[in-house]
Design a binder for these strands. Structure first.
Lengths: 338, 338
DNA sequence: CTGAAAGCGCTTACAG
DNA sequence: CTGAAAGCGCTTACAG
């Protein structure tokens, strides 16, 4: 169908080697350059990706593995990734795991079969074993949003401990002492880190940890809803403030807040992780710890491309500081009460 | 690095032609089959995508062009598209236009350069000229979420007129007579259709159209916010019900509703398009017209693959009926009042 | 700077 | 059913 490098060469009366040299940025005489440029335009010539890929053993394609493309936290990062990748000639293949480890393995295999040059992974459940299998096969991998021990690849994640610490500290500075946290279970990397930050802040400010105020359940809408319901049903153990550890849990909590007719911040102060749509729409606007998706996406691509080019071998771990946004969803407490 | 078909053939002591035949589903003797299967496993052989693509002149890759990957309406469809594509061996390259026509052209060119076999487009602004340019070059295109006249490709869209009609009808059946609509401008395909459905319902039920109740502005959060503010500021022209024509306008409207302390449905009845996160979280749950993203994604892939295989030439237009969900966000009016 | 030639890994008529 | 051989479009030493 389309014109080939041969057609261009013929039209110019020169060899394909020279045309190829021009295309790849080499030096050719002024006259040849002009002729080639004209011929390319005239013939609407495009380099054949497959021929080039075959010869170069590079696909200029990056695989992206993600739990779900309807998760706006992930897609915010994906959007940045595309922006960084396309100018360098890379495209990406996005695969969803739907949070199934079985599908995750299938999709990883799919990506490798497609001949991607590197893989960006941000799924909640990724095991060291699976990562190591592919790293040993020579795949270049960068993991986003979690850190797995004993794996020789790059990691990039939000500084969750610091984020949760700062949030808890905000409550404390406004006089709160009964501070609850709604977070995910042990298997969720960021949930655990955020719980750690919460505990550390309490400790630093000499507030005794009340295990009854730590609600751990599934890291999603239902988990948030159920935890919140449990929290308010325990009438003689009510907190004055709550930190909610991710966006989906927050959505669940908001549904519960509405059902229970709880007023924010009069009845309860709230800070949530992830500054997405809901935070804006809820009244009052929710205080939030917002992960820097731009920074994360940009750095992830940098790390991966460096790995593709260079001979970096050591595992690098990057922590991105979140930004905290405080609104009227936090009540200032009297120092005497509580 | 990886093993090639040559390695497999050598290990089996047969020709590469036979191995190729096996790989592509042809008949080989039982013994050869066994040997080949073993060799493939032993060598961890994978077909080289580029060699195959070069030879076959098919990339098994589909381009997807979308305004934004953080738009959950779009990503719901994208998710279904991947599910349909992967089992058939296709992968997809997703490109964002960020609603810029310039970027749209660049990305389309990017996709064609990458050698995609077909393109799925769902962007709000796609011109007949641009589409025709690529169709003439032999690209296979399916357009989702809008219909463009004078273009020889397939289209798939929600039956917007019917959706808006049904919503308006619901208001009317509950006794509403002053029904407003907040929608997008003329350039937005679905906005125009939804306005049409609204008008048609009023007409059918003999309710005179009040132009003052038609709010048209930008088809996004700000447009929804501003329109809603304008609507309530016009105190002697208040409607009892409002239909909001897309998700982002609804978010804007909800922010305004909160600011103005308007009670739904006591002060105002609401139906919105697109049954996404917000509808669940808002109290009371918003009535909605939900577009069938599963159906749309599935049909889109079907149409495209048919086009790739066969010799379909005529332009096909598929309309998918939306589902309407009625909640307590609509007040039953006394027949006497208003 | 330019060109002839080999070769990347695969598929596919074609002959047997 | 099997195999030898051509060729897809490109890049890259190599010689000039």
């Amino acid at each position: 169908m389309g014109a080939t490098i041969k057609d261009v060469a013929k039209l110019c009366g020169i060899s394909i080697a020279t045309v190829s040299k021009y295309i790849n940025g080499g030096n050719v005489t002024k006259e040849n350059r002009k002729n080639i440029e004209n011929a390319i335009k005239q013939l609407d010539y495009r380099v054949n990706t497959f021929a080039r890929g075959l010869k170069m053993n590079r696909s200029m394609t990056i695989g992206v593995l993600v739990d779900s493309v309807t998760n706006t936290f992930y897609t915010s990062i994906i959007s940045v990734i595309e922006d960084c990748l396309h100018p360098k000639g890379y495209s990406s293949i996005i695969c969803e795991t739907k949070e199934s480890e079985e599908i995750q393995e299938q999709k990883l295999e799919f990506l490798v079969n497609k001949g991607v040059d590197g893989i960006l992974i941000f799924t909640t459940h990724i095991s060291a074993e699976l990562l190591n299998t592919y790293i040993q096969k020579g795949e270049h991998i960068v993991v986003i949003d979690s850190v797995v021990n004993g794996v020789d690849c790059d990691f990039i994640a939000t500084d969750n401990i610091s984020g949760a610490y700062q949030a808890t500290e905000q409550f404390i500075l406004k006089g709160h002492k009964r501070i609850a946290i709604i977070t995910g279970e042990e298997k969720n990397f960021s949930a655990v880190e955020r719980l750690k930050g919460y505990k550390r802040a309490l400790e630093d400010y000499r507030i005794e940890l009340d295990d009854g105020l730590v609600y751990q359940s599934s890291y999603n809408l239902n988990g948030g809803y159920n935890s919140f319901k449990n929290m308010v049903s325990d009438a003689n153990n009510l907190p004055s403030a709550v930190l909610i550890a991710n966006y989906f849990m927050t959505i669940g909590a908001v549904i519960a807040i509405n059902e229970e007719n709880i007023n924010i911040p009069e009845d309860l102060s709230v800070i949530c992780f992830d500054d997405l749509e809901l935070s804006n729409v809820f009244k009052p606007r929710l205080s939030s710890i917002s992960q820097q998706t731009d920074e994360m996406g940009k750095r992830a691509v940098e790390l991966l491309l460096e790995r593709l080019d260079g001979d970096i071998k050591e595992s690098r771990i990057i922590r991105v500081a979140p930004k905290i946004l405080i609104t009227t969803s936090i009540k200032k407490m009297d120092n005497d009460s509580q």
